[in-house]
């Protein structure tokens, strides 16, 4: 899950879209949207993510109204309550309410995922576009850098960086993005290279458009579909990576609740309090599943040939 398999996942949309010629016209976006709307399962998955996001954003409200517990409130007299009475999804070893912690954990999980995607896309697009557009030695240098970043076994990078920067949601996102941008850069560069050869760019160039303007106005819209697909497919994997880092003790640290560290915690007690193992895992699974399904729907919408 950590490591090169993600390369493949992010590469997929690139491979799929390569060759979808010419600059996307307005109708392309409309058609894609229509196709997405027609995909009921995809829309449902998307809706589920929106719901989770809302729960995450409104976590304080939910814990005040729904569960009546704070995520950090301990009650040593009610440890390991099974699901049901008082604690809907049970309580943990310090009597903290599992449901409340799951809700607050959603903040961490989704927040880290979104931030990671944003950072990877921004940095990766910038590097990839510049490398692809300018070419030459500039391209060589940047791409060797990308090769280097992608060749470090990601896990070492994560371990060392999570020691260097104490893992908070923000630094954790930056840590994961420090590998993710490389994938995006490769993808974008490839796309730019193919787009660059086309007539309209040459035409624009000949009428003297400035580099930056050219990139922003003409290249970016062309790589946008690739980026959207990469982003929507990447979210699920990032959630898995984040959870795995938490699980290994390198991510979000207790007492802050995250789904991953709740699982680590639960592992010690799975002989007698199995529900502690079930719920966070189910949450991760459902969220990643929804992201992947939604991601696939987006990809299908943008590239109907695979449907």
């Amino acid at each position: 899950m950590i490591g090169p398999s993600r390369v493949a996942e992010l590469d997929m949309p690139g491979a799929a879209i390569e060759g979808s010629s010419t600059r996307p016209a307005q109708s392309y976006w409309n058609e894609s949207w229509e196709r997405l709307r027609a995909n009921r399962i995809g829309i449902m998955a998307g809706a589920l993510i929106v719901v989770f996001a809302l729960i995450a954003v409104l976590a304080p409200v939910f814990s005040a109204v729904l569960t009546h517990y704070e995520p950090q409130t301990i009650d040593l007299s009610k440890t390991f309550s099974p699901p049901g009475s008082g604690h809907l999804l049970g309580s943990d070893e310090l009597g903290r309410d599992t449901l409340t912690r799951l809700i607050w954990g959603a903040r961490v999980t989704l927040g880290v995922a979104l931030l990671t995607v944003a950072v990877s896309l921004t940095v990766g697009t910038a590097v990839g576009m510049m490398a692809g557009y300018y070419g030459g030695w500039f391209d060589d240098v940047l791409m060797r850098l990308v090769d280097t970043v992608l060749a470090i076994p990601a896990i070492f990078l994560f371990i060392l960086m999570s020691i260097l920067f104490k893992p908070t949601p923000v630094s954790l996102a930056l840590i994961i993005a420090s590998v993710g941008w490389g994938q995006v850069a490769r993808l974008v560069r490839g796309e730019v290279l193919s787009v660059k050869q086309r007539d309209f760019i040459l035409a624009t160039r000949s009428i003297g458009a400035r580099h930056l303007r050219l990139m922003a106005r003409h290249l970016l819209p062309n790589v946008l579909p690739v980026l959207i697909v990469a982003a929507s497919l990447g979210v699920g994997q990032i959630i898995l990576i984040e959870a795995a880092l938490d699980f290994l003790g390198l991510g979000i640290q207790p007492p802050t609740a995250s789904w991953g560290n709740m699982l680590t915690n639960a592992e010690s007690y799975f002989f007698h309090s199995v529900w502690l193992v079930y719920f966070p895992g189910v949450m991760i699974f459902v969220t990643v599943l929804a992201s992947n399904v939604f991601g696939n729907a987006i990809r299908d919408a943008f590239d109907p040939r695979l449907k």
């Binding site: 699920g236 959870a243 699974f285 990643v288 992201s291």
Partner: peptide, 18 residues
Amino acid sequence: SVAGFAVPQFWMGLILIL
């Protein structure tokens, strides 16, 4: 296969051990 892609490996491992 979409599900297989979404299961956290460590969780699946724990469940299988369990």
